[in-house]
């Protein structure tokens, strides 16, 4: 089929409340915070919780909950974009830059790889190029709007990678695993895009 879009008879553009340069193609603005996940919300006690960065050779760096809290905090305010079409502007988070974690792991001898699999309680995984988690673009966060992150939004700790579709921002994240190849994670195995850039509308496998 040609790239010429099909015009829906009698459909008219609506007065946009959002500045057009903030809304990626096919998205609409919501003021709510919808929740999407594939199964029950895991309940993990903070005493047992840890965060790990794992190398391909069995090396690993581990942080407890209080270790994480002791690291320097950042407070990103970012727009987020869900593949199910909603976008939410100016969401406020507090957490630790993934750069800090990856640098510490590298210094502790965990060899870097070009790809990373984020893994979560409940078995969820999502794959990312290492370059999408570095350079001040990604965090692990534990506060949302100045309050502890509730379990249904991924608490105690979720990944935040706001420049990619929000399924990449794994809820209930427990660690990052180094990968030599870009192996697909949970949704990526089920047909969703390996990178997921909302500005290029990379929703599904096969999208540009």
């Amino acid at each position: 089929m040609a790239d010429e879009p099909f015009i829906a008879r009698g459909f008219h553009s609506r007065r946009q409340t959002a500045p057009p340069n903030r809304l990626p193609p096919g998205q609409y603005e919501t003021r709510d915070f919808p929740v999407l996940s594939a199964g029950p919300t895991p309940q993990t006690s903070l005493a047992e919780w840890d965060f790990r960065i794992e190398g391909r050779d069995g090396t690993a760096m581990r942080w407890s909950w209080t270790d994480i809290l002791a690291l320097p905090h950042e407070t990103p305010t970012v727009d987020i974009h869900c593949v199910t079409k909603w976008s939410k502007f100016d969401t406020r988070w507090e957490g630790v830059s993934v750069d800090v974690l990856l640098d510490a792991a590298r210094d502790a001898g965990v060899a870097e790889q070009p790809f990373i699999m984020a893994f979560s309680d409940g078995g969820y995984t999502t794959n990312l190029p290492r370059a999408d988690l570095t350079g001040g673009k990604a965090w692990i966060v534990f506060l949302y709007d100045d309050a502890l992150l509730v379990p249904e939004h991924g608490g105690p700790v979720r990944l935040l990678v706001p420049h990619l579709y929000f399924w990449k921002s794994a809820k209930w994240v427990r660690g990052l695993r180094m990968m030599e190849r870009d192996d697909p994670g949970f949704w990526e195995q089920l047909g969703y895009h390996d990178r997921g850039d909302p500005w290029r509308e990379q929703r599904y496998q096969g999208d540009p």
Binding site: I7, S13, K85
Partner: peptide, 16 residues
């Protein structure tokens, strides 16, 4: 499925 509506002026809306 995803549904897409495109208006004459190119404005579009999508939903699942």
């Amino acid at each position: 499925v995803d549904v897409r509506l495109v208006a004459e002026d190119g404005y579009q809306a999508q939903r699942s």
